[in-house]
């Protein structure tokens, strides 16, 4: 039994590039989730019952089907429809859709918490419905849901490791390659585990800081 981390040194650059891919995929998917989440949140508060039902089914389905199955559905299914996108794009699409199902809840709660008077004020000033949503409702809802959206992001970082199963060499995929070159799975995966834990810890710190920063100005007004 021996444990030697130094064997990883030559591979750190390679792993870092994998981490970059993970970061890129998660950043894009976070944006995608917020967009999906906002759309679904609108649909769920819409007057049309069909739209509300579709939104509900989307959230229910994508929350109760394992992500890996969703991912395979897109990865193997889309080409059948004549849609050829690479593994990275497929991963971002799948993560966005899955994340959107979670983001919609927090965004919806954020929207419902907005004081109706504020929306009245925007309405009488002549702003269009779209402008009211993009300039008033969404920014306020996003500010109040920074924390829950942070959890969505953290979950997304952990879930993104599954993208390695569709040949994407993000952090986990890169680690698998390093294992195949070094035959040192224990060291590699211990480091990988700690790397993810450190990453999510840093993200949660950043989220706390962001939450404080964004809500410093409106602390009182919200309460």
């Amino acid at each position: 039994m021996h444990f030697d981390l130094s064997i990883l040194l030559p591979h750190l650059g390679f792993l870092a590039r994998g981490a970059e891919l993970t970061a890129a995929a998660c950043a894009l998917s976070l944006v995608g989730s917020v967009v999906m989440g906002a759309l679904v949140a609108i649909a769920r508060t819409s007057a049309s019952s069909t739209l509300r039902r579709i939104a509900f089914i989307y959230v229910d389905l994508f929350r109760n089907v394992p992500f890996i199955v969703q991912l395979f559905f897109f990865y193997y299914g889309l080409p059948e429809l004549g849609i050829y996108i690479d593994a990275f794009t497929t991963g971002v699409v799948a993560l966005s859709i899955a994340g959107g199902a979670y983001a919609s809840d927090t965004i919806r709660a954020g929207i419902l918490a907005i004081d109706q008077g504020i929306i009245d004020a925007a309405e009488v000033s002549g702003l269009s419905r779209r402008k009211i949503f993009t300039r008033i409702v969404l920014p306020i809802a996003l500010r109040t849901s920074v924390r829950p959206l942070g959890s969505v992001l953290i979950n997304m970082i952990l879930t993104s490791s599954i993208l390695s199963t569709i040949t994407l060499n993000e952090l986990t995929g890169s680690a698998q390659i390093v294992v195949s070159q070094t035959y040192r799975p224990f060291e590699v995966y211990v480091v990988l585990l700690c790397a993810y834990a450190a990453l999510t810890y840093l993200v949660s710190l950043a989220v706390t800081l962001l939450h404080r920063h964004l809500n410093r100005d409106m602390m009182e007004a919200v309460g």
Binding site: D115, G117, I118, D120, A121, A122, V124, S125, I136, P139, I140, R143, D217, M218, A221, V222
Partner: peptide, 14 residues
């Protein structure tokens, strides 16, 4: 053509 001032101000908090 009309402007409204509200009892509870209703300023945009953000």
């Amino acid at each position: 053509r009309s402007g409204t001032v509200f009892q509870l101000f209703n300023l945009y908090p953000h």
